[in-house]
Each structure stands twice: as C-alpha cells, then as structure tokens.
C-alpha cells in the first residue's frame, strides 16, 4: 500500500533522514519506533507532503506521490494524526470533525460523523465545546476522529499515546486495533515501544535518520538491543 524507498530529507542543509526504506502492506499495523530526534515525525511529514524530500521515492498503491501536494495526498486516502494532536483550538469539536472531511466536502459527511461519534462516545457529548478546552485525552480522540472523517485508507499516527494516562493508552490501543479490523491500514509512530509492539504486525526501528532494524513485531520485541534501548529490560 505504502512504499518508501531510500527517502532523504533535510532542514536547511542539515539532513535528518539518510535514506529510509519501508513498506506498509494493506491491513497491517506497522510501527516505527525510535528515540527522540530520530526523524520519525520528519518521515511522517514527508509521507503527508508537508516536508519536502531531497531524494528517494514514495509510492501509494503503486503510484509515485512524492511530487504531489499535501492536499492531494489526503484525497488519495492518506490521513495523518499529527504529533501533539494539533486540533483547531478556537473551533468546536463538531467543526474540527467537519473540517476533517474537507477533502471530500462535496459528499455527505453524516454517516462518517455518526461512525466517529460511535467510536468515541466521549466526543459525542461535547460536540459544541471549543477543541482548545478539551483534556489531552479528548484532544487525542478528536485528532483521530478528525483524520477518520476523510475516510482514509492509510492512517498515520504520530505518537498518539504521548501524555495520556495508562487507562487511556489502553483505550487508544483498542481503538487502533478496531480500526485495523475495520480494514484500515495503519502506520504507528511511537516512543512507547512496548504499547506499539503489542499491537503491531511488523516494526521498524529508526535511529538518527536510518532504519537499523525491521521485522515482525514479535521478533523486534525479542531483540536484545531493542529490549535494552526501548523496552528498558
């Protein structure tokens, strides 16, 4: 579904991705783990087209998309839940959700809205509240709901568990699993490697802009270096 080949990217003259290659197959949950500053967010931004790449190729369903502007990539079916939630603070929860369907604003958004509200009952009760007034957990659910309103085929999640209480992390993982079971493909970036590996099919380890390890999640979880560096065992 998504194939990234040898992608390089830089901020000014400082290259932070040094040739990253990874694939996500339909129906998979793939997780990308790595320490602070490894380049995970940069890669997610590159996939969505909000960060230019200096080399390599990005294919979505076989089509090269690296030259397409960000808004077209959303229309192709790639949605991102950005790091730090980034909800539209002055707008209501409902407006945030409706804007999530911007890329298909000519179609009826009611069924999707109903689906998202069913998935996150806590949002349904606060549709009129300004998003900026929500708790961190509610904002995270809203950010996911907003991304789902675009009816994506591939969902990019950038550190969704960041700053969430443990019980909310469990809820979040359940939601991600449910979405996958509902035939959504997911690329999950996490620093919480334990949680991510628990639900992922495959995993990549990114270190200072390079993929240093990849394989089935169970294998990565058992890897000695990963256990030391990311799982604290």
């Amino acid at each position: 579904m998504l194939s990234i080949e040898n992608v390089t990217s830089a901020y000014g003259r400082i290259e932070v991705l040094h040739g990253v290659t990874l694939r996500v197959e339909p129906g998979e949950i793939v997780t990308l783990i790595g320490a602070n500053g490894a380049g995970k967010t940069t890669l997610m931004h590159a996939i969505s087209g909000v960060q230019p790449i200096t080399g390599g190729a990005i294919r979505f369903n076989g089509e090269p998309i690296e030259k397409r502007p960000a808004h077209e990539r959303v229309a192709f079916g790639i949605s991102q839940v950005p790091e730090g939630r980034q909800v539209f603070a002055p707008l209501s929860v409902l407006d945030n959700l409706r804007l999530g369907a911007w890329s298909r604003r000519d179609t009826d958004m009611e069924p999707e809205l109903a689906r998202v509200c069913a998935l996150f009952p806590m949002l349904d009760a606060i549709l009129d509240m300004p998003a900026g007034a929500l708790s961190g957990g509610q904002q995270q659910m809203l950010a996911i709901g907003r991304a789902l309103m675009a009816k994506p085929r591939l969902l990019l999640l950038d550190e969704p568990s960041m700053g969430l209480a443990p019980n909310l992390v469990d809820q979040l993982l359940a939601v991600i699993r449910a979405l996958r079971d509902d035939s959504l493909t997911i690329l999950l970036v996490e620093q919480n490697a334990r949680a991510a590996l628990a639900i992922a099919d495959r995993a990549y380890v990114l270190e200072t802009g390079r993929v240093t390890l990849s394989g089935p999640a169970a294998e990565i979880q058992a890897d000695r270096r990963v256990r030391e560096a990311y799982l604290g065992i």
Binding site: S48, G49, V50, P69, A70, H71, V74, A75, S79, Q80, P82, Q86, V87, F88, A89, P90, L91, D95, R98, L99, G100, W102, S103, R105, R146, A147, A150
Partner: peptide, 23 residues
C-alpha cells in the same frame, strides 16, 4: 460556512490544516 471554518483553521494551525487536505 465550512470555507469560513477552513480560514479559521488555517489561521489557528497551518500544519494541521494542510494535513486535513486544505490547500
């Protein structure tokens, strides 16, 4: 209008606006 909301959204958070597909 939704376009009006998109203007507010762009003003509030340009990155997020681009990520939901606003040109």
């Amino acid at each position: 209008t939704l376009l009006g909301k998109a203007v507010i959204a762009t003003a509030a958070n340009r990155l997020a606006a681009r990520l939901i597909g606003v040109d």
